[in-house]
Design a protein around this nucleic acid. Structure first.
Length: 491
RNA sequence: GGUGGGUUCGUAUAACGGCUAGUACUCAAGAUUUUCAUUCUUGCAAUAGGAGUUCGAUUCUCCUACCCACUACCA
């Protein structure tokens, strides 16, 4: 959900400002490769109606070869491997970065020792001169280690006591002193790949990115990114940044997580997602949400149009979107409101489309002979009682098949001897619901008691559609048949 | 611990420094209906706390509290 919302805001911003929305796959962590994730992302965005202008071709594949429409290919960072090394070296040559030869074990040890003393180990100007790197070792030694070893990294040489002044489209001006920051790894020899920080800056520059709209968790990295642009001499074309508020769990504190959804009965994924352990997480699509509703509710989580309008199509969102209406604080997700959106979209849907969606459900329940016209009429009658198409069957099943049993509580309340007698007479002495109602009125019988008695026989319960509506679909003869069955069954 | 960000009804949010702090969801009550649902009406409910600036602060400044993120050879 959070990822889709970030993509959505990027898309809205791009389209609103006449720009392009580019999809780039940032897969620089070889240990965290998840099969199928890339396809999932593209399919999910496509379901939402978010189609990248660049980065994905007509077949929904990430573009690997540059063309006029995709000038910056390839769009997978794992395939851009060869690009980054020179930029890492360039930083070292310029004195902005250095080669570090500390092993993971050495660093872990240093961290543990610092912790034992109640301190925090920070890899920066205070510690780098005591560690093994190209700043402390002689040049020949560095050259030898670079050649012999395959586990070195390039680290950014974070300056000491420099104030980085930054601007965020959502949060305004922010200042951070570099002394509190550390020497982040930019390039990993072991993988021959950059980390996010280097890859992101280099690719944004190369791909001519003008705005970076991403989650709030990236805010602490912004100073580093600013400094990287400065080190490369790219400040003139540096993109503008916007850090979005987080999506929070509905109850309690913290970021919305995979677990929350299934625990509380709402999806956290756009589409069903099966992880490597074989666990399946619910998706909005499979749970019966319309993509329009999903996009709409996501858009309203952290943004508002400045008016009281709540229902927006994707095109309307593009038109209304403005980054300065994005809020700063995290947004708790409200499952009830999510359902409300779907309910609103369900009502707006065309009866014909809904009937088409309902027919397979009917088939699953063994109903194959219903005419399309009838299904459409049924849908028109019941759609405002439902939130999802999946609710339809539960609401109107008795229009297609007779009840086999009757709710005990309802029967005890309404199936009283004198009511049954009146109901039977009214039903059998007339030929339609209208005549029957007139008959009961003329006799001055209690309408509610008699009607509920009949409804119980038709639907198996005391709740449901109006008798006239039910009889319009099942016919008078079927109603009489059901009543007789009820009389035999309920004692 | 350190750094950064944040804080308006339960939730999402609105309010050039100026009306009784508005709207939606949820919830409650009432009306309508042959039941249920729908619909309609009404209601409950908030500026975290404290200073300061100001004729006037939800809005600006500072302090406190609380929440969140980051603090990996993850993104």
């Amino acid at each position: 959900m959070g990822g889709v919302r970030t993509a959505l805001y990027n898309y809205l911003f791009a389209k609103k400002n006449g720009g392009d929305f580019i999809l780039r796959i940032e897969d620089t962590d070889s240990h965290r490769f998840v099969p199928g994730a890339e396809e999932y992302i593209i399919e999910a965005l496509r379901w939402c109606g978010i189609v990248p202008d660049e980065g994905v071709d007509e077949n929904g594949k990430v573009v690997e070869v540059a063309s006029e429409k995709h000038p910056h290919a390839p769009y997978r960072q794992s395939q851009r491997r060869g690009i980054y090394r020179q930029y890492a070296d360039q930083l070292v040559e310029g004195g902005f970065a250095y080669y570090a030869f500390d092993t993971s074990e050495e660093l872990e040890k240093a961290r543990a020792e610092a912790e034992a003393k109640g301190e925090t180990f920070i890899y920066n100007y205070t510690t780098r001169k005591t560690l093994r790197n190209s700043l402390t070792l002689p040049a020949e030694e560095v050259a030898r280690l670079l050649e012999e070893r395959t586990d070195w990294t390039v680290r950014f040489k974070m300056p000491e006591d420099t104030v980085v002044k930054m601007d965020d489209l959502i949060r305004g001006h922010i200042e951070v002193n570099t002394s509190t920051l550390d020497d982040k790894v930019l390039w990993k020899r072991a993988d021959e790949l950059p980390t996010y920080h280097l890859a992101n800056i280099v690719d944004d520059h190369l791909m001519e990115i003008t705005e970076v709209i991403r989650g709030e968790e990236w805010l602490p990295s912004l100073p580093l990114h600013y400094l990287l642009y400065q080190s490369f001499g790219w400040t003139g074309t540096m993109p503008r940044f916007a850090h979005l508020p987080l999506l929070l769990k509905p109850v309690g504190n913290g970021k919305l997580s995979k677990r929350d959804g299934d625990k509380m009965g709402f999806p956290v994924f756009p589409l069903n997602w099966k992880n490597s352990e074989g666990e399946t997480y619910h998706g909005y699509r499979e749970d019966g949400y319309f993509p329009e509703a999903f996009v709409n509710l996501l858009a309203m989580l952290g943004w508002n149009p400045g008016t009281e309008q709540e229902l927006f199509s994707l095109d309307e969102l593009v038109e209304a979107f403005s980054i300065d209406k994005v809020s700063k604080s995290g947004a708790k997700f409200n499952p009830d409101k999510a359902k409300w959106y779907n309910k609103e979209y369900l009502r707006m849907k065309d009866d014909t489309d809904l009937a088409m969606a309902f027919i397979p459900v009917l088939a699953e329940n063994g109903i194959n002979e219903a005419s399309f016209e009838m299904v459409r009429d049924v849908v028109a009658l019941i759609k405002e009682r439902a939130t999802f198409v999946n609710d339809f069957w539960g609401i109107c099943w008795y229009l297609f098949t007779a009840p086999k049993e009757f709710a005990e509580k309802d029967a005890a309340k309404f199936w009283k001897e004198e009511n049954v007698a009146m109901a039977e007479e009214a039903l059998t002495a007339t030929a339609s619901a209208e005549e029957m109602e007139e008959y009961i009125r003329t006799k001055e019988w209690p309408m509610g008691k008699v009607m509920n008695c009949i409804r119980l026989s038709l639907t198996g319960a005391s709740s449901g559609l109006g008798i006239a509506d039910i009889m319009k679909f099942i016919g008078h003869d079927e109603a009489v048949r059901r009543f007789k069955y009820a009389k035999e069954t309920i004692k």
